[in-house]
Nucleic acid binder design. Structure first.
Lengths: 202, 202
DNA sequence: ACGGGGTGCAAGCAACCACTTGCTTGCACA
DNA sequence: TGTGCAAGCAAGTGGTTGCTTGCACCCCGT
């Protein structure tokens, strides 16, 4: 049972770095410290191994849901954005590779796009609740606003690896900065900006 | 001279779809309608062909610069955002594949990241001019604001292929929606929203 | 003591890969 | 009519890939 897990982890690592075409069975086996034949004995063929490695890796979810009844949009959105950003950062290499191979592997895309799809749906529902409660401006297109916040988080998480010099502020502060701008954008900033540390005035 | 261009275009097409490992010389030659040997006679080896195909494709630039002296932020940002968005959309497949291969091809990344780098720098300089002219709020972090708008455009252009159901509004309207939210975010919306067609009140 | 499942090793298979060689064809130009 | 160049064709180079076969090992439960 241990060899199996070592193979799955190694397959994921190699796939993230080289893609499915570059992830050769020899290299995966070497990375796992196992003989190549053992790989075939456990998974039958390369595709089955990669499939299981990728789909089983996507199970981990941020699990920081937005509340059903909004109370403090700033705090709630910040916690959610941080979890989303961290999740994307954690899977950045896998996301990059999966995106690059979506044309030749449409079903993997469906699995890989599940997280952002859920995140978008969740945030949009939250924004509609916010709108219903009068906690943000009425005319805002919740679809576009949702795309804007999730898009900022996504692009930040991806861009930090590719254009690091364009992100001078540390990773931990990024979600806060986008949430602050976002609150202004949707007209949900009764307390313009927290001038100093301290609990929110509720 | 015609065979050469056909090979370059075919190489770019196949690379966008399959990546460098999947873009075999046989397939490129077949796609170009040329014998495989001709490929080697023209470019020597596969890497040289792919290199030239990719780098020569990135030459086309949006060329819709932001003005040195801001006059109408809404109109200027909208035109710029539209050009950026269209540029990313046009190269979406190439960007996706390049991102997926950045680990094994760091120099291609440098070439591929040149456009977004320039765009970010340009927008940030514009925002600082806006701030200097008092046309937007003073406390805004221009780095984060820049990342937010370019990130929204980037994620939209990428996401429309991967999660189309999350983008119900048509592609042509997307930049306008993000720019409108962005103007609110940075406090640069003297005219809250253009209620109907007509020239800006200047 | 013994049998069996999980593993390793050596070797090899056909298919595909980038790339080369030797020769032929067609066309332009002198 | 002769020469040179671009392109095609058939064949083959050495290397890699996914995957298989056969056999030895070694630990573990009975």
């Amino acid at each position: 049972m241990e060899v199996r897990n070592k193979l799955l982890q190694a397959a994921l690592r190699v796939f993230e770095e080289c893609g499915s075409r570059g992830a050769t069975t020899r290299r995966i086996a070497a990375e796992a410290g196992v003989n190549e034949i053992t790989l075939f004995r456990h998974f039958g063929n390369k595709a089955a191994l990669l499939n299981e490695a990728i789909s089983s890796s996507g199970v981990l979810r941020p699990a920081a849901p937005l509340p059903r009844e909004p109370r403090n949009p700033r705090a709630e959105l910040l916690a959610w954005a941080r979890a989303q950003h961290a999740g994307i950062r954690h899977n950045a290499a896998l996301i990059r590779t999966s995106m690059g191979e979506m044309e030749g592997n449409p079903e993997m895309l469906r699995c890989s796009a599940e997280n952002p799809r859920r995140a978008n749906t969740e945030l949009q529902a939250y924004l509609e609740r916010l709108q219903g409660a009068g906690l943000m401006r009425a005319g805002v297109d919740t679809y576009a606003a949702t795309a804007m916040l999730t898009g900022s988080l996504f692009a930040d998480a991806m861009g930090r690896d590719m254009i690091p010099e364009r992100y001078p502020y540390p990773e931990a502060e990024a979600p806060g900065k986008y949430v602050e701008l976002f609150l202004r954008a949707i007209g949900a900033d009764p307390d313009p900006a927290p001038p100093a540390a301290g609990t929110a005035p509720d």
